[in-house]
Amino acid sequence: MPLSTDETGPQWRRRTAREDVLSWFGWATGLAVVGGCFFLISEKTIWEFVWSAPREAADLGARMVPPDWSYSSQLWRPLWDTFNIATLGTGLALVISVPVAFCAARNTTPSTAIARPLALFVIASSRSINSLIWALLLVVIVGPGVFAGVLAIALRSIGFCGKLLYEAIEEIDVPPVEAVTATGASSGQVLTYGVVPQVMTAFAGISVFRWDINIRESTILGLVGAGGIGLQLSASINNLDWSRVAVILLAILGTVIVSEWLSAKVRGALS
């Protein structure tokens, strides 16, 4: 207790002396760890490059202006592809993640011995591999192009959507489900009348949320050959064609802003 009494009356401090020491020790350790990390990073850094960064940035900026506007007419197709990668990938992921989520949720899984661990494994492995790495692998397997991108986005999103959805399913209200069961409904009917209505909003929210993330992700898949505007970007960077890079960045900026605006609208309508 931080309370004590001395000759002048009762004393109060926020922490006991012991807690004080522990708290200072904690902060000091944290600081030392972070400081050590900075030191180790700086060991591996060529500081001349870092100091010249502002000049480099100014130089890059100068090369980007004016943007090569004529190039923008060639960007519609890659943008369309980017949009498709995100949208179809999200759609595919949703179709797969719904049964996975129902298998993974404790209250709806058909069997806790086989289906649940299996579903959780699918979710965990999908989540722990980034879509860029998925794309890297898929380009080798199905060949470069939009299809690899769609699959990469879908494979990464299954885990994301599956996890959020099964958490939503586990958080539903129990009494309505009991009420539907009490009418003598079959387990399929319990699902459609008791569970599905309760998770519909969550499901819609999750889809839009992931779609918004996927738009951002699909802009970079082209870097490893999986279609979309990233292809043009990496080509232009490799050719040091900075005025084109500027146009591409602006296009990406526009796409991301539009998608964010759209998803905010939809989410606003949902809640």
């Binding site: 990073i41 591996k44 490059f49 870097l223 991301v256």
Partner: peptide, 24 residues
């Protein structure tokens, strides 16, 4: 938040050189 981390990394690598500083 607009640009994907990878895009930002590409530019930071250009500015700061290869290595963990750009990553940080």
């Amino acid at each position: 938040r607009t640009f994907h981390e990878v895009l930002i990394a590409i530019f930071f690598v250009k500015l700061f050189g290869f290595g963990p500083f750009a990553g940080m």
